[in-house]
Design a protein around this nucleic acid. Structure first.
Lengths: 350, 350
DNA sequence: GTGAAAGCGCTAACAG
DNA sequence: CTGTTAGCGCTTTCAC
């Protein structure tokens, strides 16, 4: 009995009004005489009244919370996005309910059903893979949601992502302008749209600069660090090895750096390395990693704003926003030098 | 009208029972004939029924969610803890509501009031600083909560932390055993208990090994990277400089590494560096950082278990659990060599 | 076993 | 402006 909740009725009694009036005060209804409002406010203050969200939501239809569905918390990647979401939500006094699916498809569908059934007013979905059937469910129910960093194949739905193609293009072009002509590329999981886009951007840059594309310089990874390691090793072993390696994300770039060092080569002098994401570690490794920054935090912010708009104007037309990536130049790339490959070849030709 | 919620009543109608019976099925009440239960279950299935959490909670008193109050999402530190919490909660089919206070004391108090007023069944608080008044509020109301990584001064309350003292002791001892005698120490924010504990552990190790403690070798930082940088610079400038630097957390250790390199010194040959936390970056920097691992994920798990216990048996006695830290040896420390300091001194004496 | 009825705390018409 | 009256969807007695 310690937790004696004071309700709207208690406040009403103390203020000498009906509890309907108290409700009006809570909801900032204009139709309350200032004096009355004041009295109610005082009563609330004295009683330490806090409105019960559950009840409000049950009666009013709005929960005052939005849900975030993420596959996992493993990567810092999600953390950055959450920061953006959180920042925006705090402004609106909305709560954030976090759901992690741990990549279990059944759980995802289940959560979505649950959430759309009254737990939250809207949903933010971070699902890198192709959004499954629940997107259909959500659309049918006309439930507000926006996708973050998904790769839209199929239906049109509100989403925010990054310019993966352009980012990869910029990265490759940077290397090209530095004089590199043999640029190794380590892909991400090719079933993800972002990985495909990045590969396409890389190819486009080569084409633009009239550098031939060779498959031997492309290693297929899955976005995890070990792929960077083995990928770099493989790339270093091709007959005319690359003078630069561009990995589809930062952790693979770091794996590549390890491999390169293990081979006794120097970064960036012998081999330039370039990543993608700009995770916090990127500026901490030595040499600091040149990379393409994805505006993760901003993606979270923008997605949240879109969702809030949707909440206010459910019929506003769907849109897909792509936030710009940015080349961050650090110390892992330098102009192509008389490369070790040249030396290598020279040794042979001598 | 697209979001036609199917309620318990719809299910009851379809199954040809009263809605009270449907409620019993939902709650796994034993007093339902198997055949009836089956019929209800089928109806639920066909209608795609999902119980409304808000309503259940309003009527039943339990919300099926627990709240997590954190100061911030900035550091990967919190992310690890959340993973642990999440893992445990998922097992229980409980939801997680995330609140970030952004270090605003008023918001914290406000949230706590709100949460305890019906949003959640229990609270997990990550408040490194000394828990403020709301701990009192919570205790008074007899509301279940547990503190994570706080530093209990004052009242007794359920909490889980790490063995900061022992961790620092182990770290310093490791350095001592490597032959180091002049060990620089960079503290964390000294208003935090954990920072104090780490300093105390460091001092105790010195004492145990009969190495005198000197204030000139202790630099007061605040847990942020720049402190590590300036701290190391300062430490390197003392007359008889240290041959090892032990920073109170990993990011400061990384700052220190930068400073050391900038001075043209080698790690670990000239100076050993040791950190605390074992954040993901620790094994990625070069040289990989030797550090004290804090069982962050486990702290989250344990705290959650404690909370769940509290939820079941509110009267169980409060306890404070300290999880063990662990020395992780990597590449940033090596036995003390004829150090640059010796060379330096030798040069003078020669 | 199962139905009926009384709320949980609040919002939202609808009267005055 | 303010009181009154229905519910929101579900849990819980309490009868039958």
């Amino acid at each position: 009995m310690t937790n004696q909740k004071t309700t709207i009725v208690d406040v009403a009694a103390k203020a000498g009004v009906s509890f309907g009036t108290v409700s009006r005060v809570i909801n900032n209804d204009v139709h309350v005489r200032p004096a009355t409002r004041e009295r109610v406010l005082q009563a609330m203050e004295q009683l330490g009244f806090v409105a019960n969200r559950q009840a409000r939501s049950l009666a009013g239809g709005k929960t005052g919370a939005i849900g975030l569905l993420v596959p996992d918390l493993g990567t810092g990647y999600i953390g950055e996005i959450i920061r953006g979401i959180d920042a925006e939500l705090t402004l609106q006094e909305l709560d954030l309910i976090l759901y992690t699916t741990h990549r279990t498809a059944s759980k995802e569908a289940n959560y979505v059903a649950n959430l759309a059934q009254g737990m939250v007013d809207g949903l933010l979905l971070v699902l890198p893979r192709n959004p499954a059937d629940y997107v259909g469910t959500l659309t049918q129910r006309n439930f507000p949601f926006v996708l973050i960093d998904h790769q839209g194949t199929g239906k049109e739905c509100p989403a925010v992502g990054a310019t993966n193609w352009q980012g990869a293009f910029d990265a490759a072009e940077h290397l090209l302008k530095l004089g590199h002509r043999r640029i190794g590329f380590i892909t991400g999981s090719m079933d993800l749209g972002c990985a495909q886009d990045r590969l396409a951007g890389y190819r486009a840059a080569l084409r633009t600069h009239h550098v031939p594309y060779t498959e031997e310089l492309v290693y297929e990874g899955t976005f995890f660090q070990p792929d960077g390691f083995t990928g770099a090793l493989a790339l270093l072993d091709v007959p005319d090895p690359p003078t630069a390696i561009f990995a589809s994300n930062d952790v693979m770039a770091m794996g590549a750096m390890d491999a390169i060092r293990q081979r006794g080569l120097r970064i960036p002098d012998d081999i330039a390395v370039l990543g993608f994401d700009d995770i916090p570690q990127a500026e901490m490794v030595r040499p600091a990693l040149t990379t393409i920054q994805q505006p993760l935090e901003k993606m979270g912010r923008v997605a949240t704003q879109m969702l809030l708009d949707l909440l206010e104007a459910p019929e506003s037309k769907i849109q897909r926003i792509e936030l710009p990536t940015k080349l961050i130049i650090r110390d892992s790339c330098c102009p192509r030098q008389g490369s070790y490959a040249d030396a290598h070849n020279a040794a042979y030709s001598a």
